[in-house]
Design a protein around this nucleic acid. Structure first.
Lengths: 75, 75
DNA sequence: CACCATTTGTTCGTATGTATG
DNA sequence: GCATACATACGAACAAATGGT
């Protein structure tokens, strides 16, 4: 899991794309838990808000659902 | 234009609601320019990112369109 | 019940990049 | 070049919800 800060594609979109592919490939199937924000921060080196933004992209696409205090899950 | 930090409704949703009503009431009609982020920051006392978040809500609702370097306009 | 760890939610202040006129 | 306006990102702090001890 790696994002390129020098890319023309902003990091939050790169991360969204990474997660999207993991979902569409079936690596993360329906109902599966998406890695936590904290974990994704550590894995990618991105800030919390940036990770959240990536997740919000997936939420707006209907790919995942988020529940406060619980986690993020593949729809 | 006023947001209440003690409200259960987060400021970014309060601002989104304020702008939504100004659009739906016709005070801001189609094609009209939405006040700039800087202006809304000064008017509401909110931070830049918070104002942007409110606008993103309206964008996701299709009420406004944003053009970088130009401005935000009622759809 | 209280307490705590985990996880998501919101906001702030700041900095820098990009686009338009 | 400059001013304005939006775009992205960082780091920090605290709130709220959940689940387990």
């Amino acid at each position: 899991m790696h994002v390129d800060h020098d890319s023309a594609v902003p990091p939050y979109l790169q991360l969204a794309e990474i997660l999207r592919k993991r979902i569409e490939s079936g690596e993360l199937s329906s109902g599966a838990r998406v890695p936590s924000i904290t974990y994704l921060m550590q894995e990618t080196g991105l800030a919390r808000n940036t990770v959240r933004r990536a997740i919000e992209v997936l939420v707006s696409e209907g790919l995942v659902t988020v529940r406060q205090g619980w986690g993020t899950f593949v729809a």
